[in-house]
Amino acid sequence: MNQQEMREKVLMAIQEVPLLSPSATRLLELSSQSDYDIDEVIETVKFDAALTARLLKVVNSVAYGLVHEVTSIERAVTYLGERVVASIALGESAKALFNKELKGYEGPKGELWAHDLRTAIAAREVARFCTTDLSSDLAFTAGILHAVGKAILTEFLEDTSHAMLGDIDSHDATDYLSGERARLGIDHTEAGYELACAWKLPVALQMAIRYHHAPAEAPAEHQALVYAVHLGCILAMMSGSQASDALQYHLDKQYTDYFDLKPEQIAMIVLEMNETFSTLQGALSEFKENSQ
């Protein structure tokens, strides 16, 4: 099958991905706005009984270590924070996608979600150092979604990892994205962008997915966000990833146009990322086990 035919197959697979639940779509929309009402988040959750039950399970999980059981959704949302609520809604709505074994990248089940969660936390922390106005909540949400295209491409990349890495090592490919394009006529950032469009996600999130490995190509009004996700993704890979594409991407050093980061601050971000990841991962894995 040639590149064009493979591309068509990938695009058809994207059209077959189920739409997000209305509550997940609305929560992502709300959390991407700089100014929103928490009551609206609570109201959205209340209309989704399954999501309500899951949020209560997460907030009452051992990982959060609360002394008293939380029984109201208002307290659960306040305690978890809107961005975590939106992420749980997304994870629930597209569980099959985010929990998929990344066979095409030789990554185990849960690897995509783990990388996305680390990226989200790091992007949120990086956003705090932005020299322009950038919402850390938006950076978190964009981080959760940024690599969703891999869940699509993985089906088409089985048994290619060794050859892809060989191409990079021998300089026949500049990075993993160019390897994906050479085989499929599309890379995971474009596949993710197409899915984000099909899901009708806010434009800022679409841009973060599309350009997180080429932030300089993003429209100027979204560049700060895209660079935050770019750095978040790189820091997440540096903190450990069990996939063949780990560290096989380039750092765009023009991030300094938006972020004033010193080595000590980068170290602090890494520390925060690992700590928060442990807490959230513990809570979310417990909730996943309970929900099965």
């Binding site: 990075d175 790189i234 890979m237 540096m238 560290l247 096989q248 750092l251 050093k253 080595p263």
Partner: peptide
């Protein structure tokens, strides 16, 4: 002690 693809070794946590 791995690093990202970056000839300038800006994020040199691995080396450090």
């Amino acid at each position: 002690g791995a690093k990202i693809m970056d000839p300038n070794n800006t994020f040199n946590i691995g080396k450090r």
